[in-house]
């Protein structure tokens, strides 16, 4: 029987962690772009657009991410294509991330006082100008800490993609456990690597919240 040193285990896990990072980045950026498009509809004037986004959010926040992954995996397969796990994983995570980001950002836009809209309208600004010069600069300040905070959820969400067969940190943990029979060590290390990825994000979210609030306190 082969024996594995701690370094063997750790090295393999770290190699797999690259895919966790890549998938997190893809999901976060893709979800962010889709979230912006949805936000445009959500705070826009068209009733149908608002209703659509509300339904979208309800659907993706009201069902388990794991189920969304399964549906993406088997649903894409219905079109007769052979679906690679990374495609289903990326698609489901992007859709899921967008559903949360749009709600976070909507709250931020709505947190800008009503009077700001009226003041800018009284200066003869159009909708785009109001957004560009008055509302968004204030909303973005409020939005940064919770957005960074949510990125932690995205990193943790990628762990579920191991279940549909995408090989990232969690899947590597399972594979290595099956080879070494040391679940305690392996899953302990996996948890520590996730912690090393997520904790700096959580911490910077807290710090940003404190920093960006300084300007807000003077209101």
């Amino acid at each position: 029987m082969m024996t594995f040193t701690l370094w063997d285990i750790l090295r393999n896990l770290l190699l797999a962690a690259r895919w966790t990072v890549v998938l997190s980045l893809v999901s976060f950026i893709g979800g962010g772009l889709l979230g912006m498009a949805l936000l445009y509809l959500r705070i826009g004037k068209a009733r149908a657009g608002r209703m659509f986004v509300q339904g979208y959010v309800e659907l993706f926040q009201g069902t388990p991410l794991l189920m969304q992954l399964f549906l993406a995996f088997f649903g894409l397969g219905l079109f007769g294509i052979d679906v690679p796990a990374w495609l289903a994983a990326g698609l489901a995570l992007i859709l899921w991330t967008a559903a949360f980001l749009v709600e976070i950002w909507r709250g931020c836009v709505e947190s800008v006082a009503r009077g700001q809209w009226e003041a800018s309208a009284s200066l003869g600004m159009g909708y785009v100008q109001q957004m560009r010069y008055v509302i968004l600069p204030q909303a973005v300040r409020v939005a940064v800490p919770p957005t960074v905070g949510f990125s932690v959820q995205v990193v943790k969400g990628t762990a579920l993609t191991s279940i549909i067969g995408f090989v990232e940190l969690s899947k590597a943990g399972t594979v290595v456990t099956n080879a070494t029979f040391e679940p305690f060590t392996v899953y302990g290390l996996v948890a520590l690597i996730y912690f090393a990825l997520c904790w700096p994000l959580s911490k910077s979210s807290q710090i940003l919240e404190r920093k960006l609030n300084v300007a807000h306190r003077n209101h």
Binding site: A159, L160, G173, P183, V190, A191, Y194, F195, C198
Partner: peptide, 23 residues
């Protein structure tokens, strides 16, 4: 609190179910 909030639920579950029996 920090450890739990910064690791995936799946891994916590695996650690408890597969890892703890070795203790």
């Amino acid at each position: 609190v920090e450890l739990i909030r910064n690791t995936p639920f799946l891994i916590q579950l695996f650690f408890i179910f597969f890892g703890l029996p070795s203790l």
